[in-house]
Nucleic acid binder design. Structure first.
Lengths: 139, 139
DNA sequence: TTAAGTGCAAAGGCTTTGCAGCATA
DNA sequence: TATGCTGCAAAGCCTTTGCACTTAA
């Protein structure tokens, strides 16, 4: 089956189960970032028998395969999103909870500078800013 | 008692208990960053009856009062340190677990740029880099 | 066919909370 | 003295795991 052979999971020798397909579909369709519970609840709407354990197991798999990014905004905001080609980070509005993506060329510069000054090899940058979004800062 | 009147807790109308004093002392003396459990274990050495609940309650209080910073490196590394005047961030070696502090003037630039481009008011930047420290990257 | 995934329920780790007793100011 | 803190134990929350059954390839 050509579709499955090209599937990101099949390529890496992992069976494409209905549950995995469903979870990836939901993550792809999601306009916002989902945490494990939100993903589970959306999955339940289409598969009444899917379990939360399956959601966690597959989120971990997707993360290991590099299919999704895990974004830990704080102890309660841990969300997941399908990995896209363009690297970006997040702004978190502490007033309304809105999550906004941002990019900046300064991040690569910062990483390069720190790697040089501290003799460090950076594999990942965890970065987000907390504050007030456009709407909330007016008040 | 003059000492207590000048105490950071007393100033903010919170009783200075022996437990709070002990916890602040340990945090001040700590060369490295401590998580709740490590802080509790060090506290036990000097007060056999202190409870983990007291540690958590007071860490939250100190955080609210701005006496300590909470640094959440990932889901298992959540550590605390006495707040100092100089702002800094952290490098986390994913090989040996070492935590190194770093500073960079590019961070302020980055924040200013993002605030301008995205019409955002940043109150806090969460930033750390994961990778290999000097020792581990040689291997 | 068979290695791997799933659902369920139980357990794990970290953190919070209710309550009675105790200490600070 | 009165408010508020502490210790203890229990509960909460998120996440992981053991086991028997099911399924993808």
């Amino acid at each position: 089956m050509r579709i499955k052979r090209n599937h990101p999971l099949a390529i890496k020798d992992h069976p494409v189960t209905a549950q995995r397909q469903l979870l990836l579909d939901i993550l792809r369709e999601a306009s916002s970032h989902l945490d494990a519970k939100a993903l589970y609840q959306r999955a339940l709407e289409r598969d009444r028998h899917i379990s939360l354990a399956t959601v966690y197991r597959n989120l971990r798999l997707f993360k290991e395969l590099g299919l999704v990014d895990e974004i830990r905004l704080d102890e309660i905001h841990c969300c997941y999103e399908i990995k896209r080609s363009t690297e970006h980070y997040h702004l978190l509005c502490t007033s309304c909870g809105n999550v906004i993506e941002f990019k900046s060329s300064l991040i690569a510069k910062l990483v390069a500078e720190v790697e040089h000054n501290y003799d460090f090899k950076a594999n990942r940058a965890v970065l987000h800013l907390e504050g007030y979004c456009q709407k909330c800062k007016k008040r």
